[in-house]
């Protein structure tokens, strides 16, 4: 097991370098010059632009730029933003905690409610509550997140006045609740459906009959035998979902004025801030890599037949 983990961690290095290079060269290939965009619609002095470009090293060829970027990154330097002159590390340090908070909330919500609903429905396939769940999740899946977002904002902030319409500058933990629920509801629908299907299927498995024949108490049959075997597809989904929750929150962040990673990366992309985009993206790649490792390890915990050497 230990060796396996080490091997996987080492494998991350080429994946990391490869993917950052891809993103870096994509940013390089995009049309639109960030330094020119500084000047907007006004008159400007071309000489000034050239000197800013030279100072930032933007006039060098792609490979040289990438090499110096990677070199700095290894020393913990994420570079500086072109427009604001702020270190990218500052931007990351401001955006990530917010996003992580939001993600943890949304993720907990997804797991608890999603798995819970899935279990309730899965134990009695084709019953009324099962049909009810299928309908509910269908609604959640087909409703675009901005519709749900505006609806929740209207109901909870303007009708019932339980929360503020948007998240204030220094958000208390509770302020994140509403955006987190909106963000998590799509995943929740998938998790509930996966759990429900997997449970319903495994109910008919041989080991279930054996367990019942052995005379085990129902709680143990469902809680240990059935749940454990049914969780594998759900865990797979949840693993990749963390990454999606972190980056895919642009719409939700926009509605509730949450200043997280989604908005930061969008803004940087919009302004062609290469260093910021690559910096944030490489951290997200790391998150993806680590969660997929975690998921693989969880497989072994859930299913003893899976072994890693």
């Amino acid at each position: 097991m230990g060796r396996y983990v080490v091997r996987r961690l080492l494998q991350m290095i080429p994946v990391f370098i490869g993917s950052t290079f891809l993103i870096f060269s994509m940013m390089y290939a995009l049309p639109g010059d960030p330094v020119r965009a500084l000047m907007g619609d006004q008159s400007f002095d071309p000489e000034r632009l050239a000197s800013i470009r030279a100072e930032l090293g933007l006039d060098k060829p792609l490979l040289l730029q990438y090499a110096s970027y990677l070199g700095n990154l290894l020393q913990g330097d994420f570079g500086t933003e072109i427009v604001s002159g702020r270190p990218v590390a500052d931007i990351i340090a401001a955006a990530f905690p917010v996003t992580i908070q939001l993600t943890i909330f949304a993720f907990t919500f997804t797991v608890l409610v999603g798995v819970g609903l899935g279990v309730v429905a899965g134990l009695r396939p084709n019953s009324i509550r099962d049909r009810g769940l299928l309908t509910l999740t269908l609604v959640l899946i087909s409703m675009p997140s901005f519709v749900l977002g505006f609806l929740m904002q209207y109901l909870f902030a303007f009708q019932f006045e339980l929360t503020t319409a948007t998240v204030p500058e220094d958000p208390a933990i509770t302020d994140m609740m509403l955006p987190a629920i909106v963000l998590g509801s799509l995943s929740l629908a998938y998790v509930a459906r996966l759990t429900r299907t997997s449970m319903a299927e495994n109910l008919r498995a041989d080991y279930m009959r054996t367990a019942v024949a052995k005379g085990l108490p129902r709680r143990r049959i469902v809680g240990v035998h059935l749940m454990r075997n049914s969780m594998i597809p759900v865990v797979t989904f949840l693993g990749t979902d963390i990454g999606t929750l972190m980056t895919g929150a642009i719409v939700t962040e926009g509605i509730f004025n949450v200043k997280g990673v989604g908005g930061a990366i969008y803004e940087a992309l919009f302004r062609r801030e290469g260093a910021t985009v690559v910096g944030i993206a490489s951290l997200i790649i790391l998150v993806y890599l680590l969660t997929s490792l975690l998921v693989d390890l969880l497989y072994a915990v859930l299913d003893p037949r899976i072994r890693y050497a």
């Binding site: 904002q153 303007f158 319409a165 948007t166 509605i255 004025n257 949450v258």
Partner: peptide
């Protein structure tokens, strides 16, 4: 983050 969010805050 958006002009819409600002507008919502104005209303509230």
């Amino acid at each position: 983050t958006t002009v819409e969010a600002a507008y919502k805050d104005l209303l509230s």
